[in-house]
């Protein structure tokens, strides 16, 4: 019998772009590290511990799920998505938050935010925001207690409240610094935006210099690790809307809106979560515009000073609806795609 050459067969195309999901996720994760670094510099040991805790809980939970699913992890950080969730969540928490609450938040992010839907690619909401919003609703007092940055002994000590026992009323530190957004909302005192750039303001761990976040976001957009159209629409629509309100004397300086609270982190790192954001060209702009509208509305008329997390959560919720209405016009057809 003749010895035939055996061939292997696979589907076309036979060349593929190198860039993988893991690489994209890793890029986002590396881009978060400088923000975390600045946060550690600003808030000290507590930021380091909070970040590590959330990272360990979320990555650990992901590994446990992978074991249950009998899947082999791609590495310690697997596809990096759990690490992004953990770190992002930590960056949205106030410095004096009890560690057990932070850990619970990471657990909720990974379970109710992600794996209950089937893991990566199936979650309708950004998992980090699910965790953050869960904590905000469940633990309102510790989640709105802010500590001033640049404390003298920040690298060697943590807040007493960080070590509060689970389910005990946490003893909140006497030192308390109101956030610029709170000051504006409840005391009508604006903060000049230069203070944000120079990191003079208090807030969440990740509310560091908006300039740094902007820079890292641009790098990611350039590397196509995030869709530049989302932050572009969020920022531009916010600017337009808040300028309008500013001109009629009913709102803060537009630059204050952009620089304060979780705006930059939300616009560049949370609204852009690929899984929970739209894919259609028009849909992306609508989604960004909706988030901007919600942020401006919540800040002007809502009960909360910030509202970025809620705005993005609501934005995520309408993504399927946005997809229905924004199907691209198919080549060679007159109308937009014929969907019901």
């Amino acid at each position: 019998m003749r010895d035939y050459l055996k061939v292997v067969v696979g589907p076309a195309p036979y060349i593929r772009k190198r860039r993988s999901t893991q690489v994209i996720m890793a890029e986002v994760f590396w881009a978060l590290l400088p923000i975390w670094g600045l946060s550690i510099f600003k808030y000290g040991l507590v930021s380091l511990l909070m970040g590590l805790l959330c990272l360990i809980v979320s990555v650990g939970f992901e590994h446990w799920i992978l074991v249950l699913k009998k899947q082999k992890p791609l590495g310690v950080l697997h596809d990096y998505s759990a690490a992004i969730t953990g770190l992002l969540l930590a960056l949205t928490l106030p410095p004096s938050l009890p560690f057990w609450i932070a850990g619970l938040g990471a657990l909720i992010s990974m379970s109710l935010g992600k794996h209950i839907f089937g893991g990566l690619g199936h979650n309708p909401f950004n998992p980090a925001i699910v965790g953050r919003v869960f904590l905000q609703v469940s633990f309102t007092v510790p989640m709105t207690h802010w500590s001033p940055p640049w404390l003298a002994n920040r690298f060697f000590s943590i807040f007493e409240s960080n070590l509060a026992w689970p389910f005990m009323r946490p003893v909140l530190d006497g030192v308390s610094g109101a956030t610029p957004l709170g000051l504006f909302k409840f005391e009508d005192t604006p903060t000049p935006w230069v203070h944000f750039i120079l990191d003079q303001t208090s807030g969440c761990l990740g509310e560091v210099s908006p300039l740094l976040i902007l820079l890292l976001g641009l790098v990611l957009a350039f590397k196509r690790a995030l869709d530049y159209r989302i932050p572009a629409s969020v920022i531009s629509i916010t600017l337009i809307l808040s300028s309008l309100f500013y001109l009629v004397g009913k709102g803060p300086d537009p630059l204050f809106v952009l620089a304060s609270g979780g705006f930059m982190l939300g616009a560049w790192f949370m609204a852009t979560d690929m899984v929970s954001s739209p894919v259609t060209p028009l849909g992306v702009w609508l989604y960004g515009g909706l988030i901007a509208l919600l942020i401006v509305s919540i800040r002007l008329w809502g009960g909360m000073p910030d509202g970025v997390a809620f705005a993005i959560l609501l934005g995520n919720a309408v993504v399927p609806l946005i997809h229905l209405g924004t199907q691209p016009r198919v080549f060679g057809t007159q109308k937009r795609g014929s969907l019901p």
Partner: peptide, 15 residues
């Protein structure tokens, strides 16, 4: 083949 080098992951909706 591509399948043999790295099997497909879930769609992350990058668009």
């Amino acid at each position: 083949t591509q399948q043999a080098t790295s099997p497909p992951l879930a769609c992350i909706g990058c668009g």
